[in-house]
Design a protein around this nucleic acid. Structure first.
Length: 277
DNA sequence: ACTAGCACCTGATCGC
DNA sequence: TGCGATCAGGTGCTAG
């Protein structure tokens, strides 16, 4: 669910509200969200307890909190995960999975579908080993645009599939892929090897543009499943031009936006602005 | 090595 | 009112 702008909104909230705090207690209420931590839920609780949170960092859709022992609390929100900062007396959320207690507040991992999760990354303060395969994102100053372009042009896969491949570029999900392709006037099924380097660089600019605008609006929320650390929704859904707009006129040309099935989900595009050759 | 497809979950909504 | 099918913003594993 949450893509780069939504995760960045959460990261900013954590940076403001939990960095500098010391963890006084941890309760894993459902084992599934810590499934990737091999030492198990009890070790997760024990190792996180007593640690001071030193920062809040992000790569793509992953975020992590470096700890004072050199380890890191690594977080992925999956499709429905939330990181909420609540007062301790706030009633438990229906899908509360992990409670991290601190003086005067709690950091809560809430996740309906549990595709997301937490783990303790040993020595992961700088960059958790679990996410070294994740590429930098297009807003990272060290993102290598030329490397992305050459990799895309070496593949026959459709450009949308490649935009969603987090080892080529991270942070892009189904919404911002469709929005970026609409802005760049590219059909998602165009094979990468058929797209010029210039067009791909323009596509990257569109990705940066749409994500920056979304970040400025607090992200995209269709329902209460994506919210910031205080439980508030973002407003970028009002600015979407393709995603979720099947049957509505294209803002550029007036043709009706179409929806097609893709990778067990949906793609939205303008058949006039984004033709397949 | 690359690629496509599926598994992993819960819940809301829609048609019958 | 109930039931099954479908859909939802993601990632990792695995079989070709």
């Amino acid at each position: 669910m949450p893509e780069l702008p939504e995760v960045e909104v959460v990261r900013l909230g954590l940076a403001r509200q939990v960095v500098g705090s010391v963890v006084s207690a941890v309760a894993v209420l459902h084992d599934r969200p810590v499934r990737r931590f091999e030492a198990g839920p009890r070790a997760f609780e024990a190792e996180l307890t007593g640690r001071r949170i030193e920062g809040a960092r992000r790569r793509g859709k992953y975020l992590w909190l470096p700890l004072d022992d050199g380890n890191a609390l690594l977080v992925h929100l999956g499709m429905s995960g939330q990181m909420l900062v609540r007062e301790a007396q706030h009633p438990d959320e229906r899908h509360l999975r992990v409670r991290v207690s601190m003086p005067e507040k709690e950091l809560r991992f809430v996740d309906q579908r549990m595709f997301g999760g937490l783990l303790l990354s040993h020595g992961g303060a700088e960059l958790p080993r679990e996410i070294v395969h994740i590429a930098r994102d297009p807003l990272d100053p060290e993102f290598d645009s030329d490397e992305f372009v050459s990799r895309v042009r070496r593949s026959r896969s459709g450009i949308k599939r490649q935009l969603l491949d987090q080892t080529k570029v991270s942070g892009v999900g189904n919404i911002y892929a469709d929005e970026s392709l609409w802005r760049a006037r590219l059909h998602g099924q165009l094979p990468g090897e058929q797209i010029s380097a210039t067009a791909l660089l323009q596509l990257l600019d569109c990705v940066r543009e749409v994500m920056s605008e979304a970040l400025g609006q607090g992200g995209t929320s269709f329902d209460a499943l994506y919210v910031n650390v205080n439980g508030q929704s973002g407003q970028f859904d009002r600015s979407l031009r393709a995603y979720g707009r099947a049957g509505q006129p294209c803002a550029r040309c007036g043709s009706l936006i179409r929806r097609v099935a893709f990778m067990n989900r949906s793609s939205f595009f303008c058949p006039s602005c984004q033709p397949l050759p």
